[in-house]
Nucleic acid binder design. Structure first.
Lengths: 219, 219
DNA sequence: ATACATATTTAGGCTTACCTAATTTTATTT
DNA sequence: AAATAAAATTAGGTAAGCCTAAATATGTAT
């Protein structure tokens, strides 16, 4: 059995690895988990003994295959619960993170199977993040930040690279939602702000910080 | 904030009080929680300091009003989750207890409100237990064990006094479910077994242990 | 290469929630 | 009422998961 703390460490190591690649540093983990670095050092040593991760002193940690599977199962649960909260309980996409953080630790294989069924086997969560299957596999899509695109590109908004409430609320307020078509009208060279036409209707000016965090696929 | 352990203690104290009335003894609690009696003594002293319970040395504990409200909110959550598991996820009534024991500790007022709504504001859980409202109130029904009835009584099965999987599975196997009409054909004086006609069709012999745990209302 | 800053680890401590063994209190039997 | 059994408490201890302060490594700038 893996404890609550272990599950949180594994999940965070997985996420940081996805984001930055390679080894995850003690301080990055400490920062993400809001836990003192000394405590993190302590804890990861124990996790290494349990073969959940590999740990090289002063160099950081990496998930073992076992650790990766557990991390993915937590992420799977988190994202399925998020789908449930939004699709069945009518929560907004900026209200669900904390609740899913609790629900993800509920232990019951059968529950998750049935939940998946109940939701119609969704492939993505309300933020466009991919939901791993029971075996930890997922179909990678080729989404990239809108920032990487150029004038004239026609794209579809499929996910966010930033999950903060303030960003999600910004998008809601500006009526930008998953599935929208985003057409790049022009790019201001000075500050990388984008003039974007949304669903062939409204035009909006989006700052660099915004387009950096909008994940889109080419159309 | 109340910890997981505190919530479990409060819930168990509430249940034992309902069952046996008056003060709840250290050993009864220890037994219900599967925790050593010495640990229980320790813990309830701390809970008394926090005014969650009142504690009289060597005499047992009683919930404070605050403790009672917390206990009822846990029970409310537990039972709502059980309804969800059965009505929405198609779990059987003997598969849900452990899962609900985990879900009941998830903290989010809004979640429970929305869950309640999603379920259509149920008044009872899949075992016929009453679901307290947000304020901890519930409409007591007048159900009694079938054992307390006499030959010729026409009743409706509305709840179980025993929640073990083996009892629930016994009922399933014998096609006795909540809402069924149970008519007392005859009672064997020797062993208090009941000849019961179910829904005016099949007749079944039910042992004392069974009829003791079937809660019914008069028709 | 040395000095300095930053990251990491070590050492020692704390709290929560449990444990066992021993003692004391309460209840029951003779 | 004394003896015995059962229940409850006290005392001392443990593991998990965190903390701070001090020491050591690592990386960067001069």
């Amino acid at each position: 059995m893996t404890s609550l703390a272990e599950e949180n460490y594994l999940k965070e190591i997985y996420k940081l690895h996805e984001k930055n690649g390679a080894m995850v540093s003690t301080s990055a983990l400490a920062d993400a988990l809001q836990i003192n670095a000394a405590s993190v050092t302590d804890f990861i040593k124990k996790m290494a003994v349990k073969k959940l991760i590999s740990y090289q002193k002063s160099k950081g940690v990496k998930l073992s295959e076992q650790g990766r599977q557990i991390a993915l199962s937590i992420i799977r649960k988190h994202r399925l619960w998020e789908v449930w909260l939004v699709n069945k309980l009518n929560f907004k996409w900026d209200e669900i993170h904390e609740i899913a953080e609790q629900l993800e630790h509920v232990v019951s294989k059968k529950l998750i199977e049935k939940l998946d069924d109940h939701l119609g086997f969704p492939k993505t969560d309300p933020h466009g993040d991919l939901i791993p299957d029971v075996n930890g596999q997922f179909i990678k899509n080729s989404s990239k930040p809108l920032l990487d695109h150029k004038t004239g590109d026609k794209t579809r908004f499929v996910g966010v690279a930033e999950h903060s409430n303030s960003f999600l609320q910004y998008l809601t307020k500006n009526k930008i939602k998953l599935g929208d078509e985003l057409f790049v009208e022009s790019i201001e060279e000075f500050d990388s702000s984008f003039q974007v036409k949304i669903n062939r209707k409204e035009q909006k000016l989006l700052s660099r910080d915004v387009v950096k965090n909008l994940l889109v696929i080419d159309l």
